[in-house]
Nucleic acid binder design. Sequence first.
DNA 1: CGAGGCACTCCCGATGAATGGGAGGGTGGA
DNA 2: TCCACCCTCCCATTCATCGGGAGTGCCTCG
Lengths: 263, 263
Amino acid sequence: MNGRVERSVAAWSMANSPTGDSATERLVRILDTFTPTRTVQTATEIGRRSGLPSSTAHRIVNELVTTGLLERDEERRVRIGMRLWELSTRSSQALRLRQAAMPFMERVQSRVREHTQLAILEQDEALFLERLSSPESGSNITRVAGRLPLHASSSGLVLLAFGPPDLQERVLSSRLAPLTRATLSDPDAVRRKLAEVRKLGHAIAPGYIEEVSTGIAAPVRDETGRVIAALSVVLPRDAETDFAVLELHRASADIARSLGYHS
Amino acid sequence: MNGRVERSVAAWSMANSPTGDSATERLVRILDTFTPTRTVQTATEIGRRSGLPSSTAHRIVNELVTTGLLERDEERRVRIGMRLWELSTRSSQALRLRQAAMPFMERVQSRVREHTQLAILEQDEALFLERLSSPESGSNITRVAGRLPLHASSSGLVLLAFGPPDLQERVLSSRLAPLTRATLSDPDAVRRKLAEVRKLGHAIAPGYIEEVSTGIAAPVRDETGRVIAALSVVLPRDAETDFAVLELHRASADIARSLGYHS
DNA sequence: CGAGGCACTCCCGATGAATGGGAGGGTGGA
DNA sequence: TCCACCCTCCCATTCATCGGGAGTGCCTCG
């Protein structure tokens, strides 16, 4: 019967962010609760996963929905909005690369008949822009828009070997988590591997990511000759690598040429 | 020689946002300064275009750069970050549609030999997800991730005709800006046109967008039978439309079927 | 049919992070 | 040398943001 509850005296409120993160940071935290496998969730879930109080999460999610960065489906669940996709197409940079690479990736795929993928460097990780597979392709945990650590994947090793020195510093001085027993997790071992990659012009990573498969990657250059991406295939662990290496180098050169690189 | 300038007495500072917009809003304002044709800009430019004070713009841009939503190139100019593309791939929704539609769009393209495009409804506009063209295709101002108003484009008319009633209310009661002399800009004319579209099952828009071309669009249904997209082609203004209409209907039906729609 | 769980909205006092004007540095072109 | 431009830094002010908590509505389960 008491419609009005006594307002708590211990009211202990806050302003802006008590945890010391900026508005931008919380926004990204919210967007980051979406993963390749979890593409819809309730606002409450988002709050839980991002570590934000429920009421705060609801407020921000609602704002994002009105701006179109997020969307609600029929059941009021939340997913990433088309607005975000639209904005992402403005980042022509990498999409131009993808466009240029596609035909040659298809050639590699049709000749090697295993997973063929294209990765770029993104915030100290290898980000996979595209991946072609055929039904008979073997195991491969990569997915489009997925990431792998630089020191463990063949693509990553290429990006690292031909990347800026400060990147190498940073990565080699961080923890090199092993994914399998074969993964290089010692800085010196990685350093030696990088020298080998530079010398050979490609990286071979047998069992680094998964025991059963070997990654092979070659650098892709833009018109200025800078290495901007890695083109790779994933073979069964015991497969012959020479043919794949050859095809990768050929495709890399063709991509670079179609981007305007000469010699 | 005077190292220290007298601090202005009229100092008239603010906190948070004096203009009354939320942090989210300013963020979107900043992202929106990127357009399909302007994909790189300086932080100062962003400030100017978004109407934010330079120092504020710089601060926010820097935050966005560290979170990866924006990136800087060699010359410190700013562009949309790959992080955003990555997030956008989580919005499987429309990308699934695009995936399903691609093969059939290619068939239409190869048979009609004119621009073939796929649009969805997004914030009261037609947003183009994909567009196939051949060298011999005629004029067409549409671009991937571009938008057109609902009342003026054939795709838009389809999305409007088969869309929710409140959408029709909203659009018809807003200003219907004409793009050419042929564009329908009178609410009643549009209403009659929508009735026609529903009756025929497709929209024909001669010269509404550009004097020289005619847009033709058919609705695409998802597994529940709801219209979720419009498939369209752009013909020269005087071209025969029957064959294109037929092909569009056939492709629409095939797309719906591959999405799981029956009958 | 009531209890408990869950998602969400609304309210509101407190507050500190965000704000923006302006100074100053650095660079490049005329 | 000057001007134009981009950017960083500083700091007093202040208002939008924050979040605990209450309330609502909708489930499901016992």
